[in-house]
């Protein structure tokens, strides 16, 4: 039995502690907003926040979460930065297929929370780990800048 705080609520799951958080969220808690892309921390689709820091949930054994707060795409809108990023994404029509975008939004929100005025190099450093096969990079960059301005 593993207990943890997800989007401000305590949850308990009966699962092997080795299981990556990603699969606990998706398969056991039914929170399918967090996506599986590669399973090896190379694509960023599975990004969630652990105490506000962007983390690849596909490589994080659920047993290691401990008392750190987990936030997912389903709950990021309740943080001011998260809501701003979501709005910027809609304003600029960033999204295409959208499959990578949970991860992109989580990474962008974590970036802006830590660095409210990122420049291009900061954005690259924080976002290059998130692959978008549809190629929405131009707009992701613009979206982050827009969300920063509206902060």
């Amino acid at each position: 039995m593993v207990s943890m705080r997800v989007n401000d609520e305590m949850t308990e799951v009966a699962v092997d502690a080795d299981t990556p958080l990603l699969w606990v969220l998706r398969d056991l808690l039914g929170m399918t907003g967090t996506k599986f892309g590669c399973g090896i921390a190379q694509c960023g689709a599975c990004t969630v926040h652990l105490d506000g820091v962007a983390v690849r949930s596909c490589r994080l054994p659920v047993g290691e979460v401990g008392d750190r707060a987990v936030r997912t795409i389903e709950g990021v809108g309740s943080t001011p930065v998260g809501a701003r990023v979501q709005q910027a994404w809609l304003d600029l029509d960033v999204i295409q297929c959208g499959y990578c975008q949970s991860g992109q939004i989580m990474a962008a929100a974590a970036l802006l929370a830590a660095n409210p005025e990122p420049d291009d190099a900061d954005i690259d450093a924080a976002m290059a780990g998130n692959i978008c096969r549809c190629g929405t990079y131009v707009r992701i960059r613009d979206g982050i800048k827009r969300a920063a301005q509206h902060g």
Binding site: R26, D27, G30, M31, T32, G33, T34, K35, F36, T72, I73, E74, V76, G77, Q86, W89, L90, D93, V94, I95, G98, Y99, Q101, S102, I105
Partner: peptide
């Protein structure tokens, strides 16, 4: 025109094939 399919793609509610969860599903 702003895309109509995107709001749900910003908040994790959009359902892709991989998100299908029929009751009792195994993996």
């Amino acid at each position: 025109h702003r895309r109509l399919d995107t709001p749900e793609k910003t908040n994790g509610r959009a359902r892709y094939g991989i998100d299908a969860m029929p009751a009792g599903v195994r993996f």
